[in-house]
Design a protein around this nucleic acid. Structure first.
Lengths: 201, 201
DNA sequence: ATAATAAAAACGAACGTTCGTTCATTTACG
DNA sequence: CGTAAATGAACGAACGTTCGTTTTTATTAT
C-alpha cells in the first residue's frame, strides 16, 4: 500500500477526513459532532485540531478531495466510442457504474446545497469547467449525427438524466418495482438518444 | 383572506410552520434552532410547545403539508393535451413553471435525504402513488404514438429530466451561460420527445 | 546501533455557548 | 370566568474549541 510511505501525521489526517466523510454522508454536517469524528478516526477530540483548523476546514478538505465532479469527469472523458451512439452508451455506463459502486456519491452535493447553500460550488466549477470543454467537443464532433442542439444543453441533459437516475433512486428507490432497475439504464440511454416518440410520427 | 376564520391557536401554528419551513430551507434542519423559529414566528420559545410536540414534529408537519409531490402531481394531472406531444409539453411547462415560481421547492427533498435519510419518504409515497397511476395511463394511452417503453420508466425519465433541470440549476446555476436558460426548457422537452440523434440515422 | 533531543502528535479535562425542552406563572381570548 | 396561549427563566446535555500536559515520532550526535 502507498500508505506505508506516509508520516504519522499524514495518515491521521487522512483517517480524520475519511471518518468525517462517512459521518457527514450518514448524518449531514451539522448533526455530526467532532467527538464522533474523533472516535471513528481513533483519536481524542483535541487531536483533530493538530491537523485541521476546525470543523469547517474538514468539510472544505472533503469537498476538494472527494467531490463527485472530480471523479466522474476524468472517468467519462477516458471512455471509448467512435460514434455518438457508442460514446453516450459507454459514458452512461461509466457514470452510472461509478455511481452504483459508490451510492453515497451525490450526497456530498446535497449537503453542499442544504447546509452550505452551494458556498463552495463556484470555486469548484472554476476548477472543473476546463475539463468539461473537450468532452462537449467530443459529443458534438461526429459528422453531423447529432441534431443541432447546443452542446452545453446536451451535456446538461445527459448529466441531469443520469444523475437523476440515482437521485430518484435515493428519493423513491424503495417503492419502484425491482424489475425496472435491471435494464432501465439501457432504456434511459435509449430515451436520451432517440426520445419517446416513434420516429414516423 | 381565509386566515380570518382561524382561531388564534391555528394561526400561530401556521406561523410556526411557515417560519420553520423558511429557516429549514435557508439553513437546513439541524442548524436551525427553536429560538430562531420562535423569533421569526413572533412568539417566545416555550410557546411553540403549545402547538408542536417538538422540533421533529414541526418537520413532519412540513413534510406532510409542503412536500413537492403533493403540489406537483395534482398540477401535472390537471394539464390539458390530446396527443402525447402536447401533453408532455404542457406537463413540462407546468412542472418547471411551478418549480420556477418556488425555486426552493426541491430543497425539502434534499433535507430529507441529507438529514433524515429519507425517513419519511416511504409513507409519503404510499400516499402519492395512487395519484400517479392515472397519469401514467394518460402518457401511455394515445393510439401507439409512443415507442414501447414501460410507462413507469417514462415517468421516471420525465421526472428526472425536469427535476434535474432545477437540480442542475441549484448545483451549477451560476456558471451556466445565461442565454441557455431562456429557451432551454423547450429543448429539454424536445430531447425527451425525440432524442438527440437525427431520425435518419 | 544507541542515546539524546527537539518537534509533532495525542490526550482529555475544562471553558463558554448554545441546544431542545420543561414549567410555574401571567396574559388574552372565547 | 375558564381555558387556551404566551412567557422567559431555568435545566441538563451537548456543542466546537482551547490548552497545559504527556506520549510518540523523527532526527541528530555519539
Amino acid at each position: 500500500m502507498a500508505e506505508e510511505n506516509l508520516s504519522k501525521g499524514e495518515r491521521t489526517r487522512m483517517a480524520i477526513e475519511e471518518a468525517a466523510y462517512e459521518l457527514f454522508l450518514e448524518q449531514g454536517y451539522s448533526a455530526t459532532s467532532m467527538r464522533q469524528v474523533a472516535e471513528r478516526a481513533g483519536l481524542a477530540v483535541g487531536g483533530i485540531y493538530n491537523h485541521f483548523a476546525g470543523k469547517d476546514a474538514i468539510f472544505e478538505a472533503i469537498i476538494h478531495d472527494k467531490h463527485p465532479y472530480k471523479q466522474i469527469l476524468p472517468l467519462v472523458s477516458a471512455v471509448p466510442g467512435e460514434t455518438a451512439d457508442e460514446f453516450i452508451h459507454n459514458a452512461a455506463q461509466a457514470l452510472v457504474g461509478e455511481l452504483g459502486r459508490r451510492p453515497d456519491f451525490l450526497k456530498l452535493m446535497f449537503i453542499e446545497i442544504v447546509e452550505f447553500n452551494t458556498k463552495h460550488m463556484a470555486g469548484l466549477m472554476e476548477e472543473v469547467i476546463p475539463q468539461v470543454l473537450p468532452l462537449i467537443q467530443r459529443i458534438q464532433s461526429p459528422e453531423g449525427v447529432l441534431r443541432p442542439i447546443h452542446p452545453a444543453i446536451i451535456l446538461r441533459a445527459f448529466m441531469g438524466m443520469f444523475f437523476s437516475y440515482y437521485i430518484m433512486e435515493m428519493m423513491a428507490g424503495q417503492v419502484m418495482p425491482p424489475e425496472m432497475r435491471e435494464d432501465s439504464l439501457d432504456i434511459f440511454v435509449d430515451i436520451f438518444l432517440h426520445g419517446i416518440i416513434k420516429s414516423e410520427f
